[in-house]
Design a protein around this nucleic acid. Structure first.
Lengths: 202, 202
DNA sequence: ACCTGAACACCGTTCAAGT
DNA sequence: ACCTGAACACCGTTCAAGT
């Protein structure tokens, strides 16, 4: 067949299909992407830097939805929670990609640029350089943890027959109100920001 | 050859070898475990419920190191942070297993029993049933997030040439004191416990 | 530059055959 | 019960050959 006049696939379509698979099954495979796009497995490698490259594309795709515009305008203790909420919403829309992303370090320039902006906000607010990463990581934990909850039917606890041994846990899971993820997130977020503020005191 | 007089391998040795591989490379494979134990791939399946079963064994192995004894004795606001510290230490010793565990829901009875105990502590302290999971999940986010930091050379940010574009991030990473993970964890942990306490007010 | 077709080494899983 | 050997379907990656 040889090279077609116009490319049959592109990075965008590869990313979309990979995300579709991850949302549905928690994983993806290169041959399966190729099949769905009506192309041979090898063709994928003309557009993408292997499987790891696709993971990085997924990271970029999910992170595109994060709004970071407030980082330059609002004061730090409003900008940080606002950014965190947008961050969480982006990942909550695709919670099953998170384990995938944790396996490899962040390389996507777009994502690194956001962290760079957050560093700027914190330094501008008066946080010491040596404390900045501590604050960022703490915030990120809360954000990703909250997003992860959407990964399973009732979060990370999918109790089958084992439920009989843990009646209290079952009760607690059943008693949860609808918007648990949201409420848990706001609880931890608020607590952390107040904790950060104490670092600024002389 | 047929069945040997005494079994050549057991679940314990399979788990130890799998953990060794995960600590070293971030992943494991059934054939590689078999090779290292001097046995054929198929033999593994006589002792273990497939690859997923091995993941669950890893969860149990890592969680064995968690001390939950304080859950029955100390008041909630001392028991919870003490449990969280032990929890974190156990995972910080093997940070690369965490992404593996996130992919599948918790089934290990030993682990579920600990959560059951925490539920009991919180109910006993006066938290409402509907709030218990919120508190537990928030705490767990902090714990696992802090443990994850040990996965890479300098946490999740392994900057190569991309470092030139994010000077502030590089500066912040370099300025971090030695015990960052520990300090970040204590910061978030303290803030969260104080946040939880406010839920108890009338 | 971009697709095919074919190849390679690897993986997870199963199962009859042996003791 | 537990090991082997062989098989199966699948995966990630590479690459010459074609346009």
């Amino acid at each position: 067949m040889g090279r077609p006049r116009t490319a049959l696939i592109d990075r965008q379509r590869i990313t979309t299909e990979a995300l579709r698979q991850v949302d549905g099954t928690g994983g993806f495979s290169v041959p399966e992407i190729a099949r769905r796009l009506g192309v041979r497995t090898g063709s994928i490698y003309h557009h993408v830097d292997g499987r790891e490259g696709i993971v990085e594309l997924l990271r970029e795709r999910v992170c595109e939805a994060i709004d970071a515009s407030m980082l330059g305008t609002l004061p730090w203790d409003e900008a940080l929670p606002a950014w965190a909420r947008s961050y969480r919403a982006a990942f909550a829309a695709h919670p099953r990609v998170i384990p995938l992303l944790l396996a490899s370090p962040v390389r996507a320039p777009r994502v690194l640029a956001q962290y760079e902006a957050v560093v700027g906000v914190l330094l501008g607010a008066g946080f010491r350089v040596g404390e900045v990463m501590r604050v960022i990581v703490a915030l990120e934990n809360v954000v990703l943890g909250a997003a992860l909850e959407g990964a399973g039917p009732e979060g990370m606890w999918e109790l089958g027959e084992e439920g009989g041994r843990v009646p209290g846990l079952v009760r607690a899971l059943e008693a949860e109100p609808e918007g648990r993820a949201e409420a848990a997130f706001e609880l931890a977020l608020g607590a952390c920001v107040r904790g950060f503020r104490e670092l600024l005191l002389p």
